[in-house]
Computed example of a mutant assay.
Amino acid sequence: MVQRAWLDAISVVRVDGEIDLGNAEVLEGPIEEALSARPEGLIVDLTEVRFFGSSGLSRLVDAAERSEATGALMSVVSTRREVLRPIRATGLSGYLRVRSSVSEAARDLVATR
Rank of each mutant, 00 (worst) to 15 (best):
V2I: 10
V2N: 06
R4G: 13
A5C: 09
W6M: 15
W6I: 11
W6D: 14
L7S: 15
D8Y: 13
A9D: 15
A9N: 15
S11K: 07
V13I: 08
D16E: 14
D16V: 08
G17C: 00
G17S: 00
E18N: 02
E18T: 06
L21Y: 10
L21M: 10
G22R: 05
N23R: 04
A24C: 05
E25T: 13
G29T: 08
P30Q: 00
I31F: 04
I31P: 03
I31V: 15
E32V: 11
E33N: 07
L35G: 01
S36E: 11
A37R: 06
P39D: 05
E40S: 14
E40K: 14
G41R: 06
G41W: 02
L42H: 01
I43K: 04
V44Y: 00
D45G: 02
T47D: 06
V49L: 00
R50F: 02
F51M: 00
G53W: 09
S54K: 07
S55V: 08
G56E: 03
G56D: 02
R59M: 11
R59S: 07
R59V: 03
R59Y: 04
L60V: 07
D62A: 15
A63H: 01
A64G: 03
E65L: 11
R66F: 07
S67N: 01
S67L: 00
E68M: 05
T70K: 11
G71L: 03
A72C: 02
L73R: 14
V76T: 09
V76Y: 10
V77Y: 05
S78T: 12
T79P: 01
R81A: 13
R81M: 13
R81Y: 13
R81Q: 14
R81K: 14
V83W: 09
P86Q: 12
P86M: 10
P86W: 10
I87H: 07
I87N: 05
A89D: 14
T90Q: 09
T90S: 14
L92A: 08
G94A: 15
G94L: 12
Y95P: 06
Y95K: 13
Y95W: 14
L96Y: 05
L96H: 06
V98R: 03
R99D: 11
R99C: 08
R99S: 09
S100A: 13
S101I: 06
V102Q: 02
V102K: 04
V102I: 09
E104D: 15
E104N: 08
A105M: 08
A106P: 04
A106K: 06
A106V: 08
D108L: 10
L109C: 08
L109E: 08
L109M: 05
V110M: 13
